[in-house]
């Protein structure tokens, strides 16, 4: 059981390992390095609203438009407009169905590039010049969740500030710059959003999160199991072990706490048994020869044949020093 879990633990770690380090690294970034409030310092509120009474308004009930769900009086640079809504998306970045009318003339209206330029400049407090507005259709690279077309106005500053404005009204929807783009990249990495969905509910991250859950639970299981095997003695009583070797005629005497594994007791004497797992009972490499009546662990039964067990072959990491009097290194 433990060996199967250890095997799973190893292979799952191989699959999710790099992403796990990315999660920890980006998580640490969100925790202590990210300061999203300070990302964009050239942001500036634009005053659109003006005083409505006194303006000769076109009657709403005479608009040439299909019946909407809702209507709003909105402002663009001091001028009133009627916005008619034909859907109610729960987020503004969802597809919006709207019509816009000049509230004075009742005529259909849409922002012009020249006005977009003006609003973008008013919305930007830096000194850099602005480029021409461009009307972008989704997908928009900086804003992966956005499903509506937006105007993009880029500023020639060091941080490559971009202001995104509503395609119909010219209201500022979003600012971004290289600081913000770096934070966005960290989120992309944390959410594994490598296909640019703008979301963390996708199959890739669900698959990795499932594997990581199994990885961490299997790790917890192994930690509990191994704590039992390798706990070190605090009693101070000592056990003497005779160590012989097939490659040399000398016999060494080793004094060690009885509940230390032979693997660890030998390692303390700078005798390193072959091992890939470092004494975890999973690789089966630290074979040595004990007395044939030495206890047999689950790991030994897995890695050694019954003939080997009968002949006294055991794993150094599975044998407690106290259970053995003489051992022989191969």
């Amino acid at each position: 059981m433990r060996l199967v879990i250890a095997l799973w633990h190893k292979w799952l770690a191989l699959i999710v390992g790099i992403q796990l380090l990315i999660w920890l690294g980006t998580g640490l970034y969100f925790n202590s390095l990210m300061d999203s409030a300070a990302n964009i310092t050239t942001r500036q509120a634009v005053q659109h609203e003006a005083y409505l009474p006194g303006i000769d308004l076109f009657p709403l009930n005479q608009l040439q438009a299909p019946a909407p769900i809702a209507a709003k009086v909105i402002w663009v640079l001091g001028n009133p407009y009627y916005a008619l809504y034909y859907n109610q998306p729960s987020h503004n970045y969802f597809k919006q169905e709207r019509l816009l009318f000049d509230a004075r003339s009742g005529k259909s209206w849409q922002i012009t590039p020249a006005l977009v330029s003006r609003i973008a400049s008013l919305a930007y407090s830096g000194d850099a010049s602005a480029q021409q507005p461009r009307l972008l259709s989704p997908p928009i690279e900086d804003l992966p969740r956005q499903q509506n077309p937006l105007w993009q106005v880029n500023f020639n500053d060091d941080l490559h500030t971009s202001v995104y404005l509503d395609a119909l009204t010219g209201h500022v929807v979003k600012y971004t710059n290289d600081n913000q783009r770096f934070d966005d990249l960290m989120f992309t990495l944390h959410f594994m959003d490598y296909t640019g969905t703008g979301s963390f509910n996708h199959w890739l991250i669900i698959a990795f999160a499932t594997m990581t859950a199994i990885l961490s639970l299997s790790g917890g299981y192994l930690l509990l199991k191994r704590s039992v095997i390798t706990k070190s003695s605090k009693t101070g009583s000592h056990h003497t072990l005779q160590v012989s070797s097939t490659s040399s005629p000398e016999i060494m005497t080793l004094t060690t706490p009885p509940d230390t594994s032979i693997f660890n007791a030998l390692a303390r004497q700078a005798i390193h048994l072959p091992s890939e797992c470092g004494g975890g009972g999973t690789c089966g490499k630290c074979i040595l020869r004990c007395s044939p009546d030495a206890p047999v662990s689950e790991a030994e039964r897995f890695h050694l044949s019954s003939d080997q067990l009968k002949a006294g072959y055991r794993l150094g990491c599975q044998q407690l020093a106290g259970d053995n009097k003489t051992i022989s290194l191969l």
């Binding site: 999660w23 963390f200 509910n201 996708h202 991250i205 669900i206 999160a209 499932t210 990581t212 859950a213 990885l215 961490s216 639970l217 790790g219 917890g220």
Partner: peptide, 14 residues
């Protein structure tokens, strides 16, 4: 680690 993995799993699944 176990809590990060399990809570993360819930949040990405829902």
């Amino acid at each position: 680690f176990i809590l990060w993995a399990l809570t993360g799993l819930y949040m990405v699944c829902m």
